[in-house]
Simulated assay, not measured.
Amino acid sequence: MSSSSTPIESTSKIQVAADIVAEFLEVAFHCILHNRDLYPAGVFERRKKYNVPVHMCLHPDVIQYIAQILESIKLLLDTREVDRVSLVILDHQQNPVERFVFEIGYPSKYTDFSSDILFTELEQSLRAFLLKLNVCDAMLKPLPNDATWVIHIHTNDCAMLRLEEKQILKNFPWIEAEEKQKTMHSPTLVPMKTVSSDIVKMQLFVEESAMKCDPSTS
């Protein structure tokens, strides 16, 4: 007699992987906010993650917003129902001018997480992601002075309904993204980094809008 349920051992490994991805995304979000000058440098504190210097925003509203976002992402990672997470930078008309896209894949089979080699190799890979983010401003054109940002999660309808039910109770409801915020004008793709391991599969790239590159179109 077969069962469609996930074995407890596999579930715990999925949760470990979800924790790793969520922790990395938290640092990555803060790095993007700092390196793309979305907030004044004075509201960031210099720290280290994976032995890489990073900057974390100290503004309470930003900290709370990112924490609530990560709580939601973690719920979907635990059930392997998130395909990509995007930090979208918008101009004053709410048009996307930059999109940092984290594509997330899931290993078909999780190996033994007790091996320290696995985590050492993964840490090196995530370290490379942060090093790329620290120099991303040299690869991208400047943002408009009045830029804002938002997080988009790509998932399925059933997962979205469950997420909405849980988050409404915490006064942090998710809504479907406006079509205007999803549609980018003639984007240029800037590859950043890819990691494929027995724990996490992830790819980071940036989409840069032609509207930002040509002021006459904004």
Rank of each mutant, 00 (worst) to 15 (best):
S3E: 15
S4Q: 09
S4W: 12
S5F: 04
I8F: 13
T11R: 11
K13C: 07
I14H: 04
Q15C: 14
A18Y: 04
D19I: 02
I20V: 14
V21I: 14
A22G: 05
A22C: 09
A22Q: 07
A22V: 05
L25K: 00
F29G: 02
C31T: 04
C31F: 00
C31M: 07
C31A: 08
L33W: 03
H34D: 02
H34Y: 14
D37R: 05
D37M: 03
D37F: 03
L38R: 01
L38G: 03
Y39R: 02
P40I: 11
V52I: 10
V52M: 09
P53I: 06
M56L: 12
C57N: 12
L58C: 04
D61Q: 08
D61L: 13
I63T: 06
Q64F: 08
Q68T: 08
I69H: 06
I69E: 09
L70M: 10
L75Q: 07
L76H: 02
L77R: 04
S86T: 07
S86Q: 13
S86Y: 01
I89R: 07
V97P: 05
V97S: 00
V97D: 05
E98S: 10
E98W: 00
R99L: 12
F100S: 04
G105R: 01
S108M: 03
S108A: 00
Y110H: 11
F113K: 02
F113G: 04
I117Y: 14
L118P: 06
F119N: 10
F119Y: 11
T120K: 11
T120P: 00
T120W: 03
T120H: 13
L122C: 15
L122F: 10
L122T: 13
Q124A: 13
Q124N: 15
Q124M: 15
R127P: 04
K132R: 14
K132H: 12
L133T: 02
C136R: 01
K141L: 15
K141A: 14
P144T: 09
T148K: 06
H152T: 10
H152Y: 11
I153M: 12
C158W: 09
E164L: 04
E164Y: 00
E165F: 08
I168S: 06
L169T: 13
N171I: 02
W174K: 03
W174C: 00
I175V: 14
A177F: 01
K180H: 14
Q181R: 07
Q181S: 08
T183Y: 04
M184H: 14
H185G: 00
S186R: 15
S186I: 09
P187G: 02
P187T: 06
P187Y: 08
V190G: 06
P191Q: 11
K193L: 11
K193M: 15
K193E: 15
S197Y: 14
S197P: 12
K201M: 14
K201L: 11
K201S: 07
M202H: 06
A210P: 03
K212F: 02
C213K: 15
D214R: 09
D214I: 05
S216T: 15
T217Q: 09
